[in-house]
Amino acid sequence: MRDTLYIPLRPWPTLGVVAALALLPLAAATLGQPFYVVFATRVLIYALIATSLNLLIGYGGMVSFGHAAFVGAGAYAVAMLMPAGVASAWLLWPAALLAGAGFAFLVGAVSLRTRGVYFIMITLAFAQMAYYLVLSLRVLGSDDGLTLSNRPSLGLVDLNRDTTFYYAALAILLAALAGMRVLLNAPLGRALQGIRDNETRMEAIGFATYRLKLLVFVIAGAAAGLGGGLLVSLNGLVGPNLLNWTQSGLLMIMVILGGAGRLLGGALGAVLLLVVEEAIAEHTIHWPLVIGVVLLAVVLFAPQGLSGLMRRRA
């Protein structure tokens, strides 16, 4: 029986990629470039965030233009709780996740009443609200944002060591991808993709589409919130720019570059965008120009993104 939506698990390539990622800190140390471990950690976190947006855009057809707000919710939750004496990552990261989920519930409950371009615009509006809120609230540090003196603690594991943090982020990303695969292969995932393709018809065969979309919106918000919590834990600082609408735009770019509606699309896009940015930024201050041209080329000539290109050649 043919199963068009099923996402298979290819054990050998998966194992290969995971092994390579696991060895990356070792390679960085051997090359004498320990800085790359922190950079790679940042890429992993963005991979998580972009993956959560891909769930919305690629699988749910919900083109959210305000995803940075959920990242911000998680980041500010951690940045507020740490000075208040909460030091354990076991509490802080779930709090970031809940902050993202809670805010996504509020935004989704209102926004999902609209469709199409109005949905794009209303999610943008909510993100702007959040942006101006943190920008003008002094308890949130206004312009300057908040800084943390320490990374959270994770029991016996010392997150202040960059390598340990890297492995923690890697574990979370892999768990998120595995969870997303399970979700998409489950009946809920089929329903979600049905809604993406024809929402009215889905209602007409009995699906509570609004509720299903809201559930997935909250799941994506939770993952984005966790990503924000990880980012602030890694960098030790957070500012309103994390919530700027251009950030939401960059997250969308990652999804499209990597391939919307492909399990690894978000992760691939995050790697591609951040690595290219890092590589060009060394040579020219005009690196956004290059990103812009690449993005334009992808939208015009390779709308399926990187994973689409790889698939076509395979």
């Binding site: 855009i57 083109v63 233009f65 199409g116 371009v117 794009i120 735009g249 969308m252 770019i253 499209i256 919307a260 005009h286 956004p288 120009l289 990103i291 812009g292 041209v293 993005l295 334009l296 939208v299 015009l300 709308p303």
Partner: peptide, 20 residues
């Protein structure tokens, strides 16, 4: 094209225009 493609392509134009 889809609204998503339009958003991304014209977002790219913003990046390019700013740098120019």
């Amino acid at each position: 094209r889809s609204h998503l493609s339009q958003v991304l392509a014209t977002f790219a134009v913003i990046l390019i225009a700013n740098e120019i």
